Simulated assay, not measured.
Amino acid sequence: MLYAILAYHVEAEVKSWNADEDAAVMAGLREVHQRLKGRLGPAARLGETRKASTLRGPGHGVVIDGPFAETKEQLLGFYVINCADEAEAIAAARDLRSVNPSAVYEIRALKLFIPGAAFPETAGPSDA
Rank of each mutant, 00 (worst) to 15 (best):
Y8G: 03
P67L: 10
A27K: 15
N18F: 08
I90T: 09
A128P: 01
A43N: 05
P125Y: 14
A4W: 00
P67M: 12
G41M: 00
A89N: 12
L76W: 01
L40M: 02
S98F: 06
L96C: 10
G116P: 13
P101H: 04
A128M: 09
A44W: 01
M26W: 00
T71G: 09
D65A: 11
K37T: 13
A43I: 07
P42T: 05
D20S: 15
R94N: 12
D127R: 09
A123D: 07
A117F: 13
V25W: 12
A109E: 03
V25P: 01
L110H: 09
E73M: 07
R94W: 04
V25R: 05
T71M: 04
Y105K: 03
L76A: 12
D65P: 04
G41E: 01
A87Q: 13
T122P: 04
G41R: 10
A93S: 08
V63W: 04
A84G: 14
P125N: 13
K37R: 15
P58V: 12
V104L: 00
V32P: 00
G57T: 08
F68Y: 14
G28I: 04
E86S: 13
L55R: 10
R45A: 10
R45V: 08
R108T: 00
P67V: 02
V63H: 01
R45C: 03
R97A: 05
S53I: 09
Q74F: 09
V80P: 00
S16D: 11
G59V: 10
E13W: 04
E121Q: 15
R94M: 02
G61I: 02
H9I: 15
H9V: 10
A7Y: 00
A117R: 09
S126I: 08
L6R: 06
A103C: 05
S102C: 07
R108M: 00
A117T: 13
T71Y: 10
P120K: 11
Q34A: 13
T49E: 02
D95R: 14
R45S: 04
T71P: 02
I64E: 11
R56N: 07
V25C: 06
R35N: 14
S102P: 06
V63E: 01
